[in-house]
Design a protein around this nucleic acid. Structure first.
Lengths: 347, 347
DNA sequence: TCCCGAAGTTCGATTTAAATG
DNA sequence: GCATTTAAATCGAACTTCGGG
């Protein structure tokens, strides 16, 4: 390996000067262009790459951001991760991605590993359940900027980026309503999931305003579960029961896209075609939704952008602490967007 | 921050002894239990965490493995990544995940960043196209163990883990044949993709053996593209043309699951129900396949296991180089598995 | 020679303080 | 004081050498 001393020897200057020149340090403005040229040429010639460990040891910076996902296999993560990765790349930060599988021990172990690597910021993708207060305590004391994506907990030492669930819920029901649907089945999210109640609030407040009645016999809750793909299963069984119940309905509003997939599956089994016999709308717009048969009408979360915003917040936090002003936590609520595809149609 | 010297002071021993005890170094067998206890207690009490930069600087080890994905949004990646993550976690290695978006510049930049961080091994997830010889050259000279997952290139300085495409192709056609199908449309992979030709070879050799005739008018190729989701599009348009062509067929064998989704979509549009009017089989068994309507019969790649195997190979390589024996590249071909679901049925 | 522990060097960079003309 | 350069201290752990019992 080539060290800074090799470059010093090759260029004929001291390693101090080499360091100053190659880092464009403040002092470098005193250094004449010829010297710089010679040093740069020497470094180039030798293929010098500074040792990051030595550099980090001295400077106490890692140029690294930790990313914790609660479950990678959830398609909800994919695009958010891409947004994160893209934005970090532009700033030359390297992400360290960890997947905690919704397990507490994994969470703790990974958090420790990340802090050991001196990550300068942390992004938490809390895509599904798992809201543990103690756990947040562990995070707080780390004193690095933290942003949570996709979970509504407002904590004042951690920033957050969430979709506006209330608006989203309203958007969904409004779409069905405007297509002429009046008997609408609703599958709400699990009670303890932060997204569930605001989304339901949005639905109810639109219904009230429009004079639409939501039949309690057509309203269901997803069960609690730490497995995101379970919402497919639950969507299936709930819809089975719904059909058996014989209370008529012409549309179904699902808590998320996975639930919608499960619902469509069961509707088909029962001989009900989507959208001919029943319209179905989801939430999220995960990647498979566009590829489904029929392609799914849904309320999109701008996931890539949410990831990008989380990074922006964390990077600002890092810069603030470098400049010794301390940044306060930011809470951003982003607007969802209705995406109309094939699974809904006029009554 | 608490340093080793603080622990030394607290425990009353020198930092040398502390280092020896805490790392369980060879010399530690001379150190009496009481000393160890006292040092461990002091470390515990102070909450000592060794500085990884200092440690790595000295030991020249990073306990880090690089993972390069060619396109994260490809659902094919998800489970492989989980397999990788799981296995690395067990060995206390930390993955650094990079997504090169199928772009050469990103590839180069990330490779540089990873090598700068002194990754001890590299896993490349070459899920889709992009086979560039020069690029492999860049990799080779890095002299760390490398394993490629999902791409068939046999390079003798890099290990690889791939599914047995020939067996897989045969499995797929055999399934359709055994259900009584004789007029089978086939959508092959892109010509330049490594997986395409062995898969086709498997199909043909089974057909030959079984006396099944493959009508050239029912055989198509996916176009080249660097976007994995394009195979959905291509599957759609090819199937549209196929239907228009009016050459009768009762089953369709798609290159991969995405293609199958596109095909099902177009069949539905044309009023052909799957599997009632046409059976469809895919390849890969990506996560959405189980959730599709109808759920997709497919040939599964054991992706999680493939990821795990890649890690195992790389870790072996690392250990070998630590022990000064040099490891040779390993090429593993793993067996695919037929997964029968709803999209195929007896004629 | 075996056991126990410490002093001092090293890893490769950054940074401070200081020396030159 | 100014422009230019550098010797030496520093970051925190690991390892080599050495000394005393």
């Amino acid at each position: 390996m080539i060290t800074i001393r090799d470059v010093a020897k090759e260029s004929g200057f001291s390693s101090t000067t080499v360091s100053i020149v190659l880092n464009n340090a403040p002092l470098s403005r005193y250094i004449p262009a010829v010297t710089k040229k010679r040093i740069e040429r020497a470094a180039e010639k030798l293929g010098y790459r500074p040792n990051q460990f030595a550099r980090s040891l001295r400077s106490k910076r890692s140029h690294t951001v930790g990313v914790m996902v609660f479950d990678m296999t959830d398609p909800y993560c994919t695009l958010i991760l891409r947004g994160i990765e893209n934005t970090l790349f532009e700033s030359s930060y390297l992400p360290i991605l960890t997947d905690v599988h919704n397990e507490r021990t994994r969470f703790e172990r990974y958090l420790e590993m990340l802090l050991d690597r001196r990550i300068e910021g942390l992004i938490v993708l809390a895509n599904w359940l798992f809201v543990d207060i103690n756990l947040l305590g562990d995070l707080e004391k780390s004193s690095i900027p933290i942003a949570m994506v996709g979970s509504g907990l407002k904590h004042d030492s951690m920033s957050s980026v969430v979709v506006d669930n209330e608006v989203g819920g309203a958007l969904a029901i409004e779409h069905l309503y405007s297509l002429g649907h009046r008997k609408i089945a609703v599958i709400r999210g699990p009670r303890t999931l932060g997204d569930s109640s605001p989304r339901w609030r949005g639905i109810r407040s639109f219904a009230k305003e429009a004079g639409l009645e939501l039949d309690p016999r057509l309203t269901f809750d997803l069960p609690e579960s730490r497995d995101p793909s379970s919402s497919f299963q639950a969507g299936q069984t709930i819809t089975q029961d719904l059909v058996k119940q014989k209370v008529p309905f012409t549309a179904l509003l699902a808590f998320d896209d996975m639930t919608a997939f499960g619902a469509i599956h069961s509707l088909n089994r029962a001989g009900l075609r989507v959208p001919e016999h029943c319209s179905v709308i989801g939430f999220d717009d995960v990647a498979p939704s566009a590829l489904y048969t029929p392609s799914l009408t849904t309320v999109r979360q701008p996931m890539e952008s949410m990831g990008a915003q989380a990074v922006a917040i964390v990077l600002e936090g890092i810069n603030a602490s470098l400049a010794k002003h301390d940044a306060v936590a930011v809470h951003r609520k982003v607007a969802p967007e209705l995406v109309v595809r094939e699974s809904t149609r006029k009554l």
